[in-house]
């Protein structure tokens, strides 16, 4: 009787929705299915997609990092400021990544050693890192980054023989690695246990604090890398780059069926969530739908993603109950 709920796993539903949006877009909107447009649409999600990977791990472990977009901004501002000061870009990148990892370390330290909830900690560092970004660069915008790197990040240059831009190709590789880590390793198993029942994980000898710390460092690291990608893609380093992006990342992950309470969800679902929001926004833009409406659509999808699994469960339960009362003698 519960087959409906069993086969309708939410991450599968998002995958199906993704295909539906793609087919609908190809059928109705001219230019949507063109490789150039798809390259652009994909590349537009590059930073969100990259950050969604560590974010999925965090949410599965029952944590969240709201400071990622601020870290993206800080990384971008730092890159701009150092570039202006004449540093070589090859040196700037590792410095930004180091700063990202340190920012993540601070988040993780506050969560695991001081024992604060991650939501509270990262609301604080969200403001802190954005503030630091402004201190580093002020309200300047730095441009003219080296052509070779800028080219790497744009959608017009793709992996030969495909329509996949390089940042997305990198994302794809990282996504596979993350999926293996989450679903096939002791590390991943431990994250699910921590998210579902932290005490039980700790009592089973899992190093809960250390794993959480690793996740936050990872999130800061990837967010700072996304800051570099963002800077190169737009050719502009600004302190307010990626403002509010953390919410899109978290929305995508939740839309993909990762439970905000921790312990549930798949990386495939999260990736499908990212792509769904990306494609949908692209499709709406092509159809001259205003940005405000796009935000509303994303919001509705998110609400639906939270509601639908519950509705499905309660409907199948009710049906089960009715079947049981209708045929009492056939036990």
């Amino acid at each position: 009787m519960n087959t409906l709920a069993k086969y309708l796993r939410w991450d599968t539903v998002v995958g199906v929705l993704l295909i539906a949006v793609f087919l609908a877009g190809s059928g109705t909107t001219e230019g949507f299915a063109d490789t150039a447009n798809l390259s652009a649409a994909l590349n537009d999600t590059a930073e969100i997609a990259l950050i969604a990977l560590p974010m999925t791990l965090l949410v599965v472990a029952g944590q969240v990092d709201l400071s990622v977009a601020s870290m993206l901004g800080l990384s971008s501002a730092l890159a701009g400021s150092l570039w202006e000061a004449g540093w070589s870009f090859e040196l700037i990148v590792p410095i930004c990544l180091l700063v990202g990892a340190l920012g993540g370390l601070l988040n993780g330290w506050l969560v695991t050693r001081v024992g604060l909830p991650s939501l509270a900690v990262t609301i604080g560092t969200l403001t802190l890192y954005r503030g630091l970004a402004s201190v580093v660069l002020g309200d300047k915008a730095i441009a003219d980054f080296p052509e070779a790197y800028a080219q790497w990040a744009t959608y017009t240059q793709t992996v030969p023989g495909t329509f996949v831009p390089y940042p997305i190709a990198l994302f794809a590789v990282l996504a596979v690695v993350t999926a293996v880590v989450l679903h096939c390793t002791a590390f991943g198993r431990s994250l699910y246990a921590i998210g579902a029942q932290e005490d039980a994980a700790y009592f089973a000898g899992i190093r809960v604090k250390r794993l959480k710390l690793v996740l936050f460092v990872l999130a800061g690291f990837v967010a700072s890398f996304a800051g570099i990608v963002y800077t190169l893609r737009y050719g502009s380093a600004r302190a307010d780059n990626g403002l509010g992006l953390e919410l899109v990342v978290i929305a995508s992950v939740l839309l993909g069926g990762v439970d905000f309470d921790g312990g549930k969800g798949t990386l495939g679902g999260a990736v499908a969530g990212v792509l769904l929001i990306g494609l949908l926004n692209n499709l709406l833009t092509l159809n001259d739908v205003s940005n405000e409406i796009q935000v509303i659509v994303t919001g509705l999808l998110l609400v639906a993603s939270v509601l639908t699994p519950r509705v499905v469960t309660s409907v199948s339960e009710r049906r089960q109950r009715r079947a049981a009362t209708a045929a009492p003698a056939t036990a």
């Binding site: 198993r189 699910y192 246990a193 579902a196 029942q197 994980a201 009592f203 312990g263």
Partner: peptide, 18 residues
């Protein structure tokens, strides 16, 4: 319920956790 088991996880995952 709180410390011995991850209640929502499966039997095999719980036994495997250690």
């Amino acid at each position: 319920r709180q410390r011995g088991l991850v209640m929502e996880a499966s039997i095999e995952r719980n036994i495997g956790l250690t």
